[in-house]
Design a protein around this nucleic acid. Sequence first.
DNA 1: TATTGTTATACTCTATAACTATA
DNA 2: TATAGTTATAGAGTATAACAATA
Lengths: 154, 154
Amino acid sequence: MTQFPEVMMALDLGPLDSHVGYLLRRAQLAVFADILPSLAEHDVSPADYAVLTVIDRNPGAGQSQVAETLGIQKTNFVPLIRRMEARGLVLRTPSARDRRSVALTLTPQGNALLADLHAAAQAHIERVRSHLGSAEYDSLLEPLQRLASVSRPS
Amino acid sequence: MTQFPEVMMALDLGPLDSHVGYLLRRAQLAVFADILPSLAEHDVSPADYAVLTVIDRNPGAGQSQVAETLGIQKTNFVPLIRRMEARGLVLRTPSARDRRSVALTLTPQGNALLADLHAAAQAHIERVRSHLGSAEYDSLLEPLQRLASVSRPS
DNA sequence: TATTGTTATACTCTATAACTATA
DNA sequence: TATAGTTATAGAGTATAACAATA
């Protein structure tokens, strides 16, 4: 016979426990919770990390291009990138061939910080990978890429 | 799920294109974007839908119990549940055996609305499923459940 | 002492409108 | 006309502190 548990009994989620949207949301929060402290040590948000990564891989790209790639509105991108410039992580240089746009590049400090962030991210990914098991982890990436590619801005 | 045309040349995402956290985030936004309009027609948020579902499956559960199950802080749960009560979707009855707590149940209107929401959710899930293919979709749920269960409150 | 529900509040994220200077 | 960047602002969503009533 089952006895009443001392801790609170979890409630029934019903159809939510196999709802892809609900599961994606909770899984994303759990995964972010794992890497958040490592990023916070460097005073960096997940969005900051993504921006630094994209600038590193696309030096000279314009603000709106970087913002749109990451699904960040250009209007919300301004304070984010300005803060990084103020921290000496990013260089904003007026483009010569299109004087409306600002070309983004990493400073040496930005590059050094990004190296630390990549290391932290790799350790984080290994934790997630070993939590799931390599096979299950690997099988996860492709479908997520297919879903993620839908949300690309027009 | 409708695919948006790509106007601009996409920048290189570097390691982000296989970063589980980044992919989970973008995938979650894409999937939510698909169901959001259907829910909005009923003036319901994803959180609202989840709350109604859990109350339906656990009639008489207390506020904090429902909130904690869904990872919502009890303090943020108050305006949410009060709005549902005001809309006539939820009944908040003082518990007899613990006069601190408020037992939650659905009204007939809440039940009727939830039926519509479940239908919309089912149609949404079918869109996602056919976008990914059944096999890939099915292979996605278990790892997501494993990840999502990490964030369950202790 | 601990827990349930509550208020007030602040902070982050995200969204919209409107502007400028360039193209 | 359209685009890159900007400002101001409003709305969500989420977080903490503190409290009253009850256990």
